[in-house]
Design a protein around this nucleic acid. Structure first.
Lengths: 171, 171
DNA sequence: ATGGATGCAAAGCGTTTGCATACAG
DNA sequence: CTGTATGCAAACGCTTTGCATCCAT
């Protein structure tokens, strides 16, 4: 129930919970942490999956066990705030939808996007950031971040299709 | 007037004009190279600038000197075909719009996107592709391409504002 | 108490589509 | 000729917004 300890194992360097972080951000702008906003943040940070606006809307738009129903408009408004607050970020575009992920307490990484199954797979590589930092410097560009999608076919989809005969083979 | 030689200086390794390339692609699908489609391809390949759908629409939707008026629907339909044909590709997302660029006859490159002026600046770097190829291989991912946006402030916007006094100084 | 936030429904905006007509092969 | 493409306007899907009401501070 104590949200400040939730997920600590996977967000080792984080000391403040996402909700708390959001409250702080809102305070600096004289905005308020409403129940609706808190519900949305909890829902988003309940796991580490990528998500799009509509997924959150459909989870929160119908009445839920803990009673936190939130309207579509508020979800959209809050996602924008969360992005400004640096809690989430748009990570890629898949199926013509913007895909978000947590941008708070997680190490930098990029994504493979499978052209067959549309799945996003994360990977980490130190070199990329350092190359980009150097190239940016060379061009007098003040890099603040990047977005990298590697397109192709994921390991799973590249596998030969599963044989239907396995069961028969075993008889 | 001979389109097959247009732009050759900047597309050295290309022997077939974009229009011709498109015609070939269309032929393989029993589709036709109409006047409208040709007008669009010529407009797009008249220069090397990045563009979005709406820019092309507004240039071709109103009557033009050479009479090639094209409807909004046809522009959208043709841009999709051109992407399939490998003549153009979506290169970034800026101002909530998809930005295209030529993907025929030009070397691989990536982009800086300025958060102030929203401008896209190209840069080339060999290392990035090779790092990505290696990382993909390590993950069993069959890379077919990538899309990389480096965000930050461009050299121009990072400069101190222009002084208004220069003329006075010269008196 | 009071300025900010919510929910609803309507409007926006870029893009796609159904259909009758026009035209390339 | 015949099947494909076009133009128009209507439909779409996602997102934003105006407004009356609600609520965190």
């Amino acid at each position: 129930m104590n949200s400040s300890t939730v997920n600590d194992l996977t967000r080792p360097e984080v000391t403040v919970s996402p909700v708390e972080k959001f409250r702080e951000f809102l305070a600096t702008r004289s905005k308020r942490l409403t129940q609706e906003r808190e519900t949305i943040v909890r829902e988003i940070f309940a796991d580490h999956e990528h998500f799009d606006s509509d997924q959150i809307v459909s989870r929160l738009t119908q009445p839920r066990r803990d009673g936190g129903r939130v309207s579509r408009a508020t979800v959209y408004r809050t996602l924008r705030e969360l992005e400004k607050a640096g809690l989430i970020r748009k990570v890629a575009r898949s199926n013509d939808r913007e895909v978000y992920e947590h941008d708070y307490g997680y190490p930098q990484h990029d994504h493979f996007i499978c052209e067959k199954c549309n799945q996003l797979v994360e990977f980490r590589n130190e070199e990329i950031s350092s190359v980009l930092a150097r190239v940016s410097a060379e061009h007098g560009f003040r890099m603040s971040g990047h977005r990298l999608e590697v397109h192709g076919i994921c390991a799973n989809c590249a596998k030969p299709p599963v044989r239907r005969h396995r069961k028969l083979d075993m008889i």
